[in-house]
């Protein structure tokens, strides 16, 4: 999918980070706009209508979480959070408020670009895809069959459900509570151990090296991501 010419707004008070992102993202064909605080960031969203927002959580004038709330009131523009390592709960809050993904500072450019690509992909893009492919892992949603390296893998209905939710949103981090709600229904947020057990079982069936899972990636303290 060609993403050149897509507009990205960077809201960060650190000029060095803005400069780095401007240079690198421009080189990848994106059109980059900058804002150094929340207020100008929000007005920038109105004027430039970006396709994706990169938002630093630690802004001088407004809490990054408030920016997400303000934006989500009237816009579905994907938001990628930049945040420091030790604030897992902040990340989860941001994701629950409607942010789409996060990158932990310091980050590698490859990682950020992967997040941007996943974010720019239209949310519903993969919902209608009958066959989802992730290297050796193939999910045939018409026949409800999952294969790894061509060999069929037997999944229970719940395991299949969980895998499909991850696959449809592939590349994006999904929080524990989102997954629990999506698979087990509302009011299951504190049943975290279901998720652990089912993820463990799916991994055992899909992954060739359990010590280094290739497809279902654990985002410590936040959730899971399928790639």
């Amino acid at each position: 999918m060609d993403q050149t010419g897509k507009r990205i707004l960077v809201i960060d008070d650190e000029s060095q980070i803005r400069r780095l992102l401007k240079v690198s993202l421009s080189a990848h064909g994106y059109e980059v706009y900058e804002a150094s605080d929340a207020q100008s960031g929000i007005s920038n969203i109105l004027t430039h209508k970006p396709d994706l927002i990169i938002l630093d959580l630690g802004l001088p004038d407004l809490d990054g979480l408030d920016v997400i709330k303000a934006v989500r009131d009237w816009s579905k523009t994907p938001i990628i959070i930049l945040s420091a390592r030790e604030y897992e709960s902040e990340k989860v809050k941001a994701l629950d408020l409607g942010a789409d993904d996060y990158v932990t500072k310091p980050f590698g450019m490859g990682e950020l670009l992967a997040r941007i690509r996943a974010g720019l992909r239209h949310k519903g893009d993969q919902v209608d895809q009958p066959i989802l492919k992730f290297e050796d892992l193939v999910i045939d949603r018409v026949k409800r069959v999952v294969t790894v390296e061509g060999k069929e893998v037997k999944l229970t209905p719940t395991e299949y459900e969980l895998l499909t939710v991850l696959a449809v949103n592939s590349g994006k981090v999904l929080t524990h509570s989102f997954l629990l709600r999506a698979v087990w229904g509302p009011h299951t947020e504190n049943q975290g151990h279901y998720l652990r057990i089912y993820i463990g079982q799916i991994r055992r069936k899909l992954e060739t090296d359990l010590a280094r899972p290739k497809h279902i990636i654990t985002e410590p303290g936040v959730g899971y991501r399928l790639i």
């Binding site: 524990h176 652990r196 010590a211 280094r212 654990t218």
Partner: peptide
Amino acid sequence: RLESGMLKLNKDWCAIEEIIGAATK
């Protein structure tokens, strides 16, 4: 953070193999 006592445990049910997997990653 450890020494200042600011570190708050965010406990949840975890699978040790997952923790080890995340660490090796």
